[in-house]
Computed example of a mutant assay.
Amino acid sequence: MGGHGRRRAGTGEEFWQYRPAQAGDSARFIDWRRSARSDGQFIRDREWQLAQSLNLWVDGAASMRFTGAKTRPEKAARARLLALALAVAAIRAGERVGLTGPLAPARPGRRQLMTLAAVLSDDATAQDYGAPEVIGIAAQARVAFLSDFLGDPAAVQAAVAQLADRGIGGVMMQVLDPMEEDFPFDGRTIFESMGGALRHETRQARDLRTRYRDRLAERRHLLTELARQAGWQFATHRTDTSPQGALLWLTASLERGR
């Protein structure tokens, strides 16, 4: 994180190239040690560096409000925590951070953290599942999607493809409650979506376990392949585990994808 080279001369700390001095160049920019090895005078150019932009999408749909136990946070709360922690790390490194969409464009500075926290706390919809927004993302930016990715994958596929076509890299982190992975249900069970739009009753929930786990594995495979083809990274985080490991993975993956 921090300033990133743009492979051209400009303001920065890293050496870029020597070039012959021209009329109008100030004498204080002449590299006298390099010039002493030839008959001409040379200017030591530095590489132009610019802060990176990081854009976050935190799914605020109804499905993210699920938790399987009072001792565990909702998926939305964990996703917001990870997003804000990632934003703190990026802003401390001099990055610009914002949300995808028009509500909080990427900006530097600690004041931006308050803006992000305020917008994320109100980012809740009645829809069962969310879809990422991809407007307002600058070229050469990085993107982090945090969601359960349990809805129609077509919207996620379209968003990632659109960003990848523009050369924008990123990461996807699937945040799940342990019950959504383990499917510990048995006997008569009523399944209802958080928004109330979907409802299913069964008398033998155990009979659905294998099919459910197979469907979840298929979804993960789809997301993993989507990320691989776009040059992104994908991982899953459970809300019963420490958020520190997830934050380290997010930071390292975004760094690798610069």
Results as ranks from 00 to 15, higher is better:
Gly60Glu: 03
Gly60Asn: 06
Ala61Tyr: 01
Ala61Lys: 11
Ala61Phe: 02
Ala61Leu: 06
Ala62Tyr: 01
Ala62Ser: 12
Ala62Gly: 10
Ala62Trp: 00
Ser63Ile: 13
Met64Glu: 09
Arg65Met: 07
Arg65Phe: 03
Arg65Val: 00
Arg65Asn: 12
Phe66Val: 03
Thr67Glu: 01
Thr67Ala: 10
Gly68Asp: 03
Gly68Ser: 11
Gly68Lys: 00
Ala69Val: 05
Ala69Arg: 13
Ala69Cys: 13
Ala69Ile: 04
Lys70Leu: 02
Lys70Trp: 01
Thr71Val: 10
Thr71Trp: 09
Arg72Ile: 12
Arg72His: 13
Arg72Met: 13
Arg72Gln: 14
Pro73His: 05
Glu74Met: 12
Glu74Cys: 11
Lys75Arg: 15
Lys75Thr: 11
Lys75His: 10
Lys75Phe: 14
Lys75Trp: 11
Lys75Met: 14
Ala76Pro: 08
Ala76Arg: 15
Ala76Glu: 07
Ala77Trp: 04
Ala77Ser: 14
Ala77Tyr: 04
Arg78His: 05
Arg78Leu: 11
Arg78Asp: 00
Ala79Gln: 02
Ala79Glu: 04
Ala79Leu: 10
Arg80His: 05
Arg80Gln: 12
Arg80Gly: 04
Arg80Cys: 05
Arg80Leu: 05
Leu81Met: 03
Leu82Cys: 09
Leu82Asp: 05
Leu82Ser: 11
Ala83Arg: 09
Ala83Ile: 00
Ala83Ser: 13
Leu84Cys: 04
Leu84Glu: 02
Leu84Tyr: 00
Ala85Val: 01
Ala85Asn: 08
Leu86Gln: 11
Leu86Ala: 10
Ala87Met: 05
Ala87Ser: 11
Ala87Asp: 02
Val88Met: 04
Ala89Arg: 08
Ala89Trp: 07
Ala89Thr: 09
Ala89Val: 13
Ala89Glu: 05
Ala89Gly: 06
Ala90Trp: 06
Ile91His: 10
Ile91Lys: 12
Arg92Asp: 14
Arg92Gln: 15
Ala93Gly: 15
Ala93Gln: 14
Gly94Ile: 11
Gly94Met: 10
Gly94Pro: 14
Gly94Glu: 07
Gly94Arg: 02
Glu95Asp: 15
Arg96Gln: 14
Arg96Glu: 09
Val97Leu: 15
Val97Glu: 12
Val97Arg: 15
Gly98Trp: 01
Gly98Arg: 09
Gly98Thr: 12
Gly98Tyr: 01
Gly98Ala: 13
Leu99Asn: 13
Leu99His: 08
Thr100Met: 13
Thr100Phe: 03
Gly101Ile: 09
Gly101Asp: 05
Pro102Ile: 05
Pro102Lys: 01
Pro102Gln: 03
Pro102Ser: 09
Leu103Arg: 10
Leu103Gln: 10
Leu103Glu: 08
Leu103Asp: 10
Pro105Gly: 09
Ala106Lys: 02
Ala106Gln: 03
Pro108Thr: 00
Pro108His: 06
Gly109Asn: 11
Gly109Val: 00
Arg111Asp: 12
Arg111Cys: 07
Arg111Thr: 14
